[in-house]
Design a protein around this nucleic acid. Sequence first.
DNA 1: TGAGAGAATGTACGCGTGTACATTATACAA
DNA 2: TTGTATAATGTACACGCGTACATTCTCTCA
Lengths: 349, 349
Amino acid sequence: MIAIASRKEVAELAGVSEATVSRVLNNVGPLKEKTKEKVLAAARELGYTPSSLARSFARRRSGNLGVIMPYLPKARLFSAYYFSEILSGIGSRAREEGYDLLMIFRDADEPLDYCGLFRMRKVDACIVLGAKEEAGELAALRQLKQEGHPYCLINQHFAGEGFHEVDADHVEGCQLAVKHLLQQGFTRIAFLNGPQAYSNSRDRLEGYMRAFQEAGIPADPSLLFEGNFSRRSGMAAAQVIAAQLERIEAVAAANDRMAIGLQQGLRELGIPAERMPAIVGYDDSDAAELTTPALSSVRVPFYQLGEIAAAKVLELPESGSGDTVQEIIQVKLPAKLIVRASSLRLGGM
Amino acid sequence: MIAIASRKEVAELAGVSEATVSRVLNNVGPLKEKTKEKVLAAARELGYTPSSLARSFARRRSGNLGVIMPYLPKARLFSAYYFSEILSGIGSRAREEGYDLLMIFRDADEPLDYCGLFRMRKVDACIVLGAKEEAGELAALRQLKQEGHPYCLINQHFAGEGFHEVDADHVEGCQLAVKHLLQQGFTRIAFLNGPQAYSNSRDRLEGYMRAFQEAGIPADPSLLFEGNFSRRSGMAAAQVIAAQLERIEAVAAANDRMAIGLQQGLRELGIPAERMPAIVGYDDSDAAELTTPALSSVRVPFYQLGEIAAAKVLELPESGSGDTVQEIIQVKLPAKLIVRASSLRLGGM
DNA sequence: TGAGAGAATGTACGCGTGTACATTATACAA
DNA sequence: TTGTATAATGTACACGCGTACATTCTCTCA
């Protein structure tokens, strides 16, 4: 490879000092128009591109926005849709701000140390996806907060911690879903939730409860089921639910994958269409309109969650630990119910 | 924030020189056990973590593996599944090798300059996803090759260019699909392909042709249709195909999304189950088993494609332009047909 | 005991920027 | 013309690490 051109060579060719080259390239300070041109011409001629490595080093800023993802194998519990939407949002915003995206996969066993990322200067800010209520995670996040690094959680709330969080309103989202089922005339509505370690599971449960409360109907705790967000767990739930179809008219699921698994499981168990419970999913993933019947679902603005989190976290200062009172990011976007065939009363309406 | 500990402080606390600290941390050269302990203890006490920024700078290597993705809005033409699988494979391998993943989104309009990434030292190697036959793209890739940077394409072949490529065998994959349909007794098999700008579309077409050739049946060019890989385009194709159902017994689609769009489109047009053509998709995305009937599909080992590409590209030397004769990466993994209900002869078997 | 070899450590510097400060050119008013 | 303010540029160095080379320590064997 032709030796990479250096700033020094550019300076010589343009007949100026290195500092001037730097100034031209960063457009800083007063500069004679003529000089600018000379330098740019020389740079072009030599094919000079400043090294981001050296640049980052000198500026002591990596220019990277870290995105922390769940451990890979586990990522399959979440839908690809979920991440790709959020990532797109983050990426689109990051690029506008001139940041690169550094993907970091949480390790399975190793204790996670988000602060290390900052100490190592790998990232200037980071966004945490798929976090859950767990000791190590909590400790790592607390330290992040305590040391005053710019970070933000998406879709996970830690009560009483005051973390920076961008989330959708899952209480309202689930409430919408259940309310819709109630309005369809169903009252015996089961709830297939996700693990309680995720705040949004707990939020959804609250939404479920509120919908019943609002309707003045007592909720039946024996209608609460738990899966792990996977389609497989939805199919497993089908076994249980199929046996109780005389007392279950409808099911609200905490995500589409479980809802779809449930649909399929029930069908495989030979439940005919007319005995199928009404089903509402959650996330409104692209799979929702692929099923038969098409799945009603709660649409979550994942893309926007990513965009907003990126925007917010990038304007957060790298403050010292608690020296300035920092405003806490607390964004909650509304979710929206998308009604399709799966939740409509058969032959009704 | 407490001022970040420096190597100097560690050296002082441990009573050694900075060089020794560096040696201990990188485990290089002969070291007295005692010294190691002293240094490590001091580092731990001060909470010292070497700056990757400075480290990268000194080593002149970023430690990043770049992953180039299509422009975001366009990414929706591809399935989230496709990327998330490949990314997982790449990420898993990169982490094993101690590399970080830097996501780079191709710009819509700006002429792309992959070499710039290397000149700027943002990445030590890069993997290109979703490339297609197009002037700017080709030029950028040629330069990459000419300058001898470690790069690799996934799932796109440029004939006669000798680029580093890791791909699945789409000729064979599509041949398997069509052969299966032929074996089911169908002979009037339509082909819903993707844009010809993608080599894998052309490969699939070849596979389609070969299957017919092998069976000794002339292929009918009027049965070739083209979509753009989106579900929407599959639904559009349904319009056309529905009108010709007396001469079309089966359809092979170039990806699942189009196949699913086709299924749905036909159903919406009121085609009853017994008149539905047999359908085979491609990719075996997770959506394939969500549809009714479940979609037969060609499974592509996306995860492995990512893993292998990462492994290969990371062991590629940053060679000068053509000074050493470099071996060209040319990996082709087999695809595999997964048969489900959508392609089985009704009432048959 | 001394010399020599290798182990262990220290010294010094380069990596390619950004930028504070010093210096020189320019314009304008007196 | 001369002085002065400001524009324009140059000089010098820090950033935090890796590492070549120089130096000192330690051990063995004669």
